[in-house]
């Protein structure tokens, strides 16, 4: 792909164009370095921090709550990322074939939960999952036993359902945009070549959507790794829905142990970084920007 070359005259433009994000990056990295340095201290946000090396990390290794949060977070990633992308793609493909008003309404409705605050949705679902809530009323109506949706064993799954319910519409919207961008000529040519619909889907649609899919996998994985809002509202007892970010938040702001929280943040960042690097490395095997 050819690019705009950078002769001297455009250097100034690059500087101008990148000025706002560079300020933002400066702000974020300055704050991140300040915040993360605390991972090697015992700072409680009040007395001045004391350097304690890797002591926090040693404690984290033996912290059963940390491991609970890691396992819960991984479950959320493994369940919600494939489910959201699969459901989003399915919805997009199906919506794409509808026309006129139906299409407008469907797109609007599927995307709608994304526009609502996580707090409002969490609250709504708290009612739905409640002992005598909508779901159990429905189950009783059809003659089934009610379920403890927020009970110890089920709360994490209930959180996953909420995340998928909220998120798949956003993904389908992005996919609809991706589908619309696929030139019709490709399908016409394939049709003339006698390719059936399966072949067209796998040889044209899916490959043409790979940049979108790659983007979505990266973004939803990072989002799922940082799950917080949903579990902030729907909170299973005995750490059954504790996520890493929630644990960081709790350590920092209700137990005043900023040092420990910063050390946890280091670990979270490393996890996300490793996952992202793997995904970026794998990208060359399946993502195609040009056909």
């Amino acid at each position: 792909m050819s690019q705009i070359k950078s002769p001297k005259a455009t250097v100034i433009w690059i500087l101008v164009f990148l000025f706002p994000p560079t300020i933002g990056l400066g702000l974020v990295y300055y704050s991140a370095v300040q915040g993360l340095t605390m991972g090697f201290t015992n700072w409680n946000m009040i007395s001045s921090p004391k350097w304690i090396g890797f002591k926090n990390f040693g404690q984290i290794w033996n912290d059963y709550r940390f491991w609970a949060s890691v396992s819960n977070t991984l479950v959320i990633v493994l369940v919600t990322v494939p489910a959201q992308i699969g459901l989003g793609l399915l919805a997009a493909v199906l919506v794409h074939r509808t026309k006129g008003k139906t299409s407008t309404i469907l797109r609007f409705v599927y995307f709608y939960p994304t526009t609502c605050s996580v707090v409002a949705l969490g609250l709504m679902w708290l009612f739905i999952y409640d002992a005598g809530g909508l779901l159990n009323q429905g189950l009783e109506f059809v003659g089934l036993e009610s379920v403890r949706w927020l009970g110890y064993g089920n709360a994490l799954l209930s959180v996953c359902i909420l995340i998928i319910w909220t998120g798949f519409g956003y993904i389908s919207l992005i996919y609809v945009a991706g589908l619309a961008a696929i030139p019709e000529q490709y399908y016409e040519a394939a049709h003339l070549d006698g390719a059936n619909s399966w072949q067209q889907f796998f040889n044209i649609t899916l490959p043409m959507l790979t940049p979108t899919t790659f983007f979505l996998i990266i973004v939803t994985t990072i989002g799922a790794m940082q799950t917080f809002g949903q579990v902030y509202i729907i909170n299973g007892r005995a750490d059954s829905t504790l996520t890493i970010v929630q644990y960081i938040y709790e350590k920092a702001f209700t137990q005043f142990n900023m040092g420990y929280a910063a050390a946890l943040s280091w670990i979270l960042i490393s996890f996300i970084l490793i996952l992202t690097v793997i995904q970026v490395r794998l990208q060359r095997y399946w993502v195609s920007y040009d056909i």
Partner: peptide
């Protein structure tokens, strides 16, 4: 406790 409503 899990059979009691959390909101009511």
């Amino acid at each position: 406790p899990a059979d009691l409503s959390t909101q009511k």
